[in-house]
Computed example of a mutant assay.
Amino acid sequence: MTAQDLPLPHSSAPGARGFDQVETWVFDLDNTLYPAQHDLWGQIDARMRDYIAGLLNISREEAFARQKDYYRRYGTSLRGLMIEHGIDAHAFLDHVHEVDLSTLEPSPRLAAALEGLPGTKLVYTNGSERHALNVLGKLGLDTHFSAIHDIVAAEFHPKPTEEAYLRFLRAHGVEPTRAAMFEDLARNLEVPHRLGMTTILVVPPTEQIESRESWEFEGREAAFVDHVTEDLAGFLETLGG
């Protein structure tokens, strides 16, 4: 597959890695397998803020600033809270993932596109397995993935750290040069690309999502991003075809 083969709204970098060798397809969960416009992350964001405010007895504004600082420095707010405050990670995950999924609907088009991909499909998330199962169930995608690799399986080493990816690759026997990674955050593709994976950045049609920080959208033009798409199902249909 070359840049010329991909119709809009997809684009590929000059010299981008292709897909002929790919036998393992790795997908992030939130804002990747469902459109960011559903803004489940906004709910999760708010619950993290409230958890931190209660834990540290600070205002919600202070908690939000602390949360984003930990997120940027440690990869996840959870990792920062574990290192800085020794919190119970499981209690935190249970709290922040109690979100309303009613806006999610089955996605038969995406399900069919996933079915058309040859090889193994995996979900790799910095969230919890329980959250992933709930989301995949709502989307009607729960039968299309061989495994979910969550933050617990990663022993709380989050993307984008190299240690996290190496643990993932070992756990599932993935050969990175024969794998593709789909992510909504460019920074989470830098290490996979360096390890040999084909990288695909999934972005919303409009990149103005209120609950996201501006720095989270940085890196779209980076050399470690092989392909960019605003339409995951359409992109996969092209590959399956």
Rank of each mutant, 00 (worst) to 15 (best):
M1H: 09
A3F: 00
L6T: 00
P7G: 03
L8P: 09
L8N: 05
P9A: 02
P9L: 01
P14R: 01
R17V: 00
R17D: 00
F19G: 04
V22Q: 02
V22S: 04
V26L: 15
L29V: 05
T32I: 07
L33W: 09
P35G: 03
P35T: 06
A36M: 06
H38E: 13
G42R: 08
I44T: 12
D45S: 14
R47T: 12
R49C: 15
D50M: 10
G54C: 03
G54M: 07
L56I: 04
A65V: 11
A65T: 15
R66G: 02
K68Q: 15
D69V: 10
R73W: 11
Y74F: 15
R79Q: 15
E84D: 14
I87F: 05
D88S: 04
A89Q: 02
H90K: 10
D94Q: 15
H97A: 11
E98M: 12
E98G: 12
L101S: 06
S102I: 01
P108W: 03
L110S: 09
L110E: 08
A111F: 05
E115P: 03
L117R: 04
L117T: 08
P118S: 11
G119L: 10
Y124V: 12
Y124C: 13
T125N: 06
N126M: 08
G127S: 13
L133I: 06
L136V: 07
G137E: 12
G140L: 07
L141R: 01
L141T: 05
D142R: 12
T143L: 11
T143A: 13
T143K: 14
F145D: 01
I148F: 07
H149G: 00
D150Y: 01
D150T: 02
I151Y: 04
V152S: 08
H157L: 11
P158A: 05
T161A: 10
E162C: 05
L166S: 05
L169E: 10
R170L: 13
H172I: 08
G173Y: 12
A179N: 00
A179P: 02
M181A: 04
L185F: 12
R187A: 11
N188R: 08
N188K: 12
V191N: 02
L195S: 02
T198A: 06
T199D: 02
I200V: 15
P204C: 05
P204N: 03
P204K: 00
E207H: 07
E207I: 01
E213L: 14
S214D: 15
S214Q: 13
G219R: 03
V225N: 00
T229D: 02
A233Q: 02
G234L: 01
L236Q: 04
L236P: 06
T238E: 03
T238C: 11
T238H: 09
L239T: 07
G240N: 04
